[in-house]
């Protein structure tokens, strides 16, 4: 047996500036929260705005997480992702409206059951829609970015029109289930119950996604596939199947995000997904292509900054997302935690 020659390699320790450079993206959210505290001045307002910003960020993250993996795994630019948000919202809200007896009852159990049914219906329908979308619209245009943009935008428009055919062209107003209405008071601040729930759901999903990506073989394949899909295939894994699974999961998550966003806004429209796509793309880009952690940090930054600025300087809130993207990209042109380098 051949043994290697004597070889005792060591790593040089990273300097403080190198370590700070690596950790910087993870520090942005806490730093922004602290800055927000000093800028806003009153604890109650700061707490309300922070929870609101985190809730908004979590919902955007849920919608964006699948898209960033789809970008990274197969280099697919899917502008049709917004359609899953709208369809998820319409399906979920339809279930809630059909179960108005449960949502209107002052019973936590019935309220939660109604929301769970709505969420499962939205996930099932948008997951199935994602599978069909990948087969019919995305698969023929692998490797052709311009065609991907054209056909996925076309798919988005067609699905929006289908929503209007099925549910009508008018927006649908809704009210949240009884037990999710109102606010809880904490440290003098009124924090909406629904926003707290959105934060909890977002955190659970983020942790679950990290567990799957970091602790399972399929997660390992996805992470490796985002970095170097060609090599993953050369090892023997059918990356196309993995990609379809991620596409379906991403579509289902967008559907879940749609239901949550609909309940947050208490109104849904066929174009809501298309409108959300601007935020979703900003989050994917500033997070770094293919990075779930980057999308999470980016979504929280977008949510918090928008809420703080809407309170401090409402006119600035209109440009906060674009300004944030410009600042991040000037600092890190590939986004905060890129897994895939932009071409």
């Amino acid at each position: 047996m051949s043994a290697a020659p004597d070889h005792t390699p060591t790593f040089a320790a990273l300097s403080l500036s190198d370590r700070l450079e690596k950790a910087a993206p993870f520090l942005l959210v806490p730093v922004l929260v602290v800055l927000g505290f000093f800028a806003i001045g009153t604890t109650s307002s700061w707490l309300t705005l922070t929870v609101s910003g985190l809730a908004m960020g979590m919902m955007i993250f849920i919608m964006a997480s699948g898209l960033t993996l789809v970008f990274g795994l197969m280099d697919v630019i899917n502008f049709g992702h917004g359609a899953f948000i709208s369809v998820g919202a319409y399906v979920g809200i339809s279930v809630l409206l059909a179960l108005s007896g449960w949502t209107g009852a002052p019973s936590l159990v019935l309220n939660i059951l109604a929301v769970l049914l709505a969420v499962f219906a939205a996930i099932a329908v948008t997951g199935a829609l994602g599978w069909g979308f990948e087969r019919v619209i995305v698969r023929p245009v692998y490797g052709a970015h311009l065609k991907q943009i054209l056909v996925t935008v076309g798919g988005l428009i067609v699905i929006e029109q289908l929503i209007q055919m099925v549910w009508g062209p008018e927006e649908i107003f809704l009210t949240r289930p009884e037990m999710l209405k109102g606010a809880v008071t904490f440290a003098g601040a009124a924090v909406e119950k629904y926003r707290l729930l959105a934060v909890v759901i977002g955190l659970i999903l983020f942790v679950a996604m990290r567990m799957v990506l970091l602790r399972t073989k399929i997660g390992l394949i996805v992470r490796a596939g985002v970095a170097n899909g060609e090599m993953v295939e050369a090892l023997g894994y059918r990356l196309r199947i993995v990609f379809i699974g991620v596409f379906i999961a991403g579509s289902a998550l967008a559907g879940l995000g749609g239901v949550m966003w609909g309940l947050y806004q208490e109104v849904i429209t066929a174009g809501m997904g298309e409108e959300m796509m601007i935020l979703v793309f900003i989050v994917v880009i500033i997070g770094g292509l293919g990075s779930v952690e980057g999308a999470f940090i980016g979504a929280l930054l977008v949510g918090l900054l928008q809420n703080y600025l809407a309170f401090l300087e409402p006119k600035l809130a209109l440009i906060s997302n674009i300004a944030l993207m410009a600042a991040i990209l000037m600092w890190r042109p590939q986004g905060m935690l890129p897994v895939v380098k932009a071409k």
Binding site: L220, R223, A227, N228, E230, M231, A234, G236
Partner: peptide, 22 residues
Amino acid sequence: VPARARAGIGFVPEDMGIFGDL
């Protein structure tokens, strides 16, 4: 490609194909 690998062909590319983040 995956079917060829599973048939018993191992490949070491010129750029090594290491997953650097793993």
